[in-house]
Design a protein around this nucleic acid. Structure first.
Length: 498
RNA sequence: UCCUGAGUAGCUCAGCCGGUUAGAGCAUCUGACUGUUAAUCAGAGGGUCGCUGGUUCGAGCCCAGCCUCAGGAGCCA
């Protein structure tokens, strides 16, 4: 009697007293027969008997076995793809193949139903295009599970890298009044009634009546503010959202993206390049170490996809091999001028296969040229430096005019295979007169940037920094090909649904 | 914004030279089966052929405009 009661009591309290465990932890359990409680979402329910359950803690699904003969049919009907359930049961060695352990359920509770006629995710392969249309649900797929775990790891690794080196994380403003950075079209920020904007006598909008008393925009870069902080802390970085109102419709542009911008006092361009290369290698190796399961999945996904491509278009290395290769090799460093020489003598240029032929010095490099250098000629990441001054921003440090009268600046772009420009940076022009000369030539109003120029007036020092497009990094590491698939809710022209 | 291609069932796609009632696989539903791995087998339901207009006896198919998506280019990170 006593024993019976104990057993009975034990069963009674099963669903209230047993603490819910993450599936990731259940897989680590070694004691067969141990009672566990898990909660998650049903991926598939096979044979009226086998639930593939996922709670997001790991990629692998836990197999929960239902004793269908002794389970109410109305409950079985509610175990559908997408439903949230709680399951209590014993850990047992799996009789089937495909998993070593499974949970033999003694109790199943439906936490949230999922109407199978309406739930759009099916236990089958979906196109990324379709999943983009249901961005609110696509996290529940294997691919996006993996992508966003890797994204998280990379973000964490970025902070770890800089923190370990004594950098200060600066939060630069999202709303900015300066319209002079020249990094692209900006989104306007206003509280004015757009139907009745106050006007000045000359008919232009009177922004003095706006919230900030002046015209404001969303930031296109935290660099200028970052430089101010670097002139006190020595080394800082920013990591925040950045906005560009360009009408860009490509696989590598977003209207809202996350950018990492370190800025370091007393650094020259060489130091800057080394920092960027070290950082990229650090975060990639962090992902390789901490996202094995996810990267292996993405690696396999990519191999599957490659099977459908013609031989020519297939990549030479699988994803994980590509990442390892990237870690094991120094990035190639060369000047713009050297790159032009290589391109001018290249086969596609000689055979006139480039759409834009390289004829002389001074033109900006097109995508096809960057791709040739990175993917065909060097076959590894490339850092291009010392671009013509005319095609680069005003704040970049000017080199002395060379023997042929060419004006260059201490710029550097890091080009990655398949991605293109992943980092853009430079040593900054710290000499006030050279900087203001350049601003005049480029029609950038000095009055608006008086605070920026103050850094050159009071204790100016050599310094350098760069901007890293975080989503482009995630693209490279996950092997995804469209930037809209590596950010949760992508913003791009005609799209801000979620 | 430019170039190219696409838009047909919930998803992936086929649909011939313009011709009768627009098809398949998967998903869903019903039934069978019950150690399955995107289970399997049998059956059923499911369509504003992107939208608007035009040509034609007749348009999913031809023409024009628009919308959306994909890939490439430009802008860039």
């Amino acid at each position: 009697m006593y024993n019976k009661m104990r057993i009975f009591a034990h069963l009674k309290i099963a669903h209230t007293m047993i603490k819910r465990q993450q599936i990731k932890e259940v897989f680590k359990e070694t004691a067969y027969g141990k009672e566990v409680r898990v909660m998650g979402w049903v991926k598939t329910f096979r044979n009226n008997q086998f639930i593939a359950l996922n709670d997001g803690s790991c990629m692998a699904n836990l197999q929960v076995v239902v004793d269908f003969a002794n389970t109410d049919e109305s409950l079985l009907k509610r175990i559908t793809t997408g439903a949230a359930i709680a399951a209590t049961g014993k850990i047992v060695e799996s009789l089937g193949k495909g998993q070593s352990v499974e949970v033999k359920a003694t109790e199943i509770e439906i936490l949230g139903d999922s109407d199978p006629e309406k739930y759009p995710l099916q236990p089958k392969k979906h196109s990324l295009e379709f999943l983009r249309e249901i961005a609110h649900l696509r996290f529940r797929t294997n691919t996006f599970n993996a992508v966003f775990k890797v994204r998280h790891a990379l973000a964490f690794a970025v902070h770890q890298f800089f923190n370990d080196r004594g950098f200060v994380y600066m939060h630069t403003p999202v709303i900015t009044a300066s319209d002079a950075e020249g990094a692209g079209e900006m989104f306007k920020v206003t509280t004015l009634d757009l139907n009745e904007t106050p006007r000045k006598e000359d008919g232009s909008i009177d922004f003095s009546q706006d919230f900030f008393g002046r015209a404001t925009n969303l930031t296109v870069s935290g660099q200028l503010e970052g430089e101010l902080a670097a002139m006190a802390f020595g080394q800082i970085y920013t990591f925040g959202p950045t906005f560009r109102a360009e009408n860009s419709n490509t696989t590598r542009h977003l209207a809202e993206f996350w950018m990492i911008e370190p800025e370091v006092a007393f650094f020259d361009l060489e130091d800057n390049m080394q920092l960027a290369e070290d950082m990229l290698k650090y975060v990639i190796s962090y992902a390789l170490e901490h996202c094995k399961e996810e990267l292996e999945f993405l690696n396999g996904r990519l191999l599957e996809e490659e099977k459908n491509k013609p031989q020519q278009e297939r990549s030479e290395l699988a994803l994980i091999d590509k990442l390892s290769f990237c870690l094991g090799n120094d990035f190639v460093r060369l000047t713009y001028t050297e790159a032009i020489d290589i391109l001018r003598n290249s086969k596609p240029n000689q055979k006139k296969q480039f759409k834009y032929l390289i004829e002389g010095w001074g033109a900006d490099l097109q995508s096809e040229h960057e791709r040739y250098l990175v993917e065909k000629h060097f076959k590894k990441p490339v850092i291009l430096t010392d671009y013509p001054a005319d095609i680069k921003a005003f704040y970049m440090r000017q080199n002395e005019v060379d023997s042929e009268g060419r004006r260059t600046v201490r710029a550097m772009d890091i080009l990655f295979p398949g991605i293109g420009e992943i980092v853009g940076g430079s040593q900054r022009e710290e000499r006030l007169d050279r900087l203001t000369d350049r601003m005049k030539a480029m029609h950038i109003p000095e009055e608006e940037l008086w605070w920026y120029l103050d850094t050159r007036r009071f204790g100016s020092a050599p310094h350098a920094g760069f901007g890293l497009g975080f989503e482009r990094l995630v693209l490279f590491v996950t092997g995804m090909t469209n930037i809209r698939d590596v950010i949760a809710f992508p913003r791009f022209p005609k799209s801000a649904e979620f």
